[in-house]
Amino acid sequence: MRQSRALWLLDRVEREPRADTMIDALRTGIRSLPLGRGRDALHGRWLGHPVHPLMVQVPIGSWLSAAVLDLRPGRSREARLLVGVGLAAAAPAALAGAVDWAELHRQQQRVGLVHALTNAAAVGLYAASLACRVKGREAAGRAYGFLGLTAVGLGGALGGHLAYRQASGANHAEDVPHVVSEGWHRIGTVDEFPAGQPVRRSVDDVPVLVVREPGGTIHALAERCSHLSGPLSEGTVADGCVQCPWHGSVFRLSDGWNVRGPATAPQPAFETRIVDGHVDVRLAQEPAAKEGNTDRTRTHVEVGTTHGHGS
């Protein structure tokens, strides 16, 4: 079966570098916005997944409802209200999408730029629709509205490509609990893990980050960042956390909790033990604790003749 024309065009967009200079400028500008803690809120860290797909339901739903009312006589006032609601809701939804877009891979950003431009065209068409409706030019307002809905549909298709084909916003560590076999896995001797240094090991072909604290406690997390699979073993370890070197997500070593985004999902954590100077790990039996909870059971177990995690 031949590849569809639409998919061929999308693949071309992913490989097209001519807009990369614009992408770099936009990404720098978005990253420099003084959003503070609001940045993580826009990423959706509080929700556990990106908030942008949730926010776009308001403008899309409003505009679709307006289109339905436009097909019925005597509903122009209600349709005008819905068009206005959609326009008001589009701005915060676009901001959330832009904050996510600035932390994506280049191929994703190329498609995302076209997605944003298409949605911007939709907003422009709906703004024209509202202006015509306010002036009493209902026929023109309806025409602009249907054109805007067409642009929204195209933008939605591009957003679906981003989410499902390119996996932007997906949890890239979700598969770990399904592929790591049960039980303890030996990953090396204590001496192989210098204090304070991230070390990469493998369990059932799954990369694992191992960090031994100066006090001797050993932590182990899935090594590929849940945001976009960045190598945490190449990141920075400080204050009981590891920072991804690609986009700056910060995870707590003790349980994998995502302390700071853009990651919206925690890292799968492993329990650790030392037996006769060797380090064993197994997938933790309980989910990561909620932020700020310091009363959870520790995921570090000492077993055998070695008393303490020091070398």
Rank of each mutant, 00 (worst) to 15 (best):
L47M: 14
V56P: 04
L82R: 11
E78L: 10
S65H: 01
S62N: 12
H43Y: 14
A66N: 09
D40C: 06
A67D: 07
S76G: 06
H52D: 13
L81M: 15
E78H: 05
V68S: 12
L81W: 14
A79Q: 02
S65C: 11
V68M: 14
R72P: 00
A41G: 05
G48M: 13
R45Q: 11
W63N: 03
H49E: 11
G44M: 04
S62M: 14
R75C: 10
L54C: 09
G74K: 06
A66R: 10
L42Q: 05
E78N: 01
H49V: 03
A79K: 01
H43V: 01
A67C: 06
R72V: 13
D70V: 00
S65A: 15
V58P: 01
S62I: 09
G44H: 03
P53L: 09
P59L: 02
W46P: 00
P73F: 06
P50F: 04
L81S: 15
L69I: 02
M55S: 08
H49W: 15
A66K: 08
W63L: 09
R72K: 12
G44E: 02
L81N: 13
P59W: 02
P73G: 05
G74T: 01
G48P: 05
A41L: 12
V51T: 00
P53E: 04
A67N: 01
L54F: 15
H49C: 10
R75Y: 09
A79E: 03
V56T: 14
H49N: 12
L54K: 11
D40E: 11
P53A: 07
H49S: 12
R45H: 04
P53G: 05
D40W: 02
R75A: 12
M55T: 06
R75K: 13
I60T: 14
P73R: 07
V56Y: 01
L71W: 09
Q57Y: 11
S62V: 09
H52I: 09
R80N: 13
R77H: 07
D40M: 06
W63C: 01
A66Q: 10
L54H: 14
S62R: 08
L81A: 15
L47D: 08
L42F: 05
V51P: 00
D70L: 01
H52P: 06
I60M: 15
G48N: 11
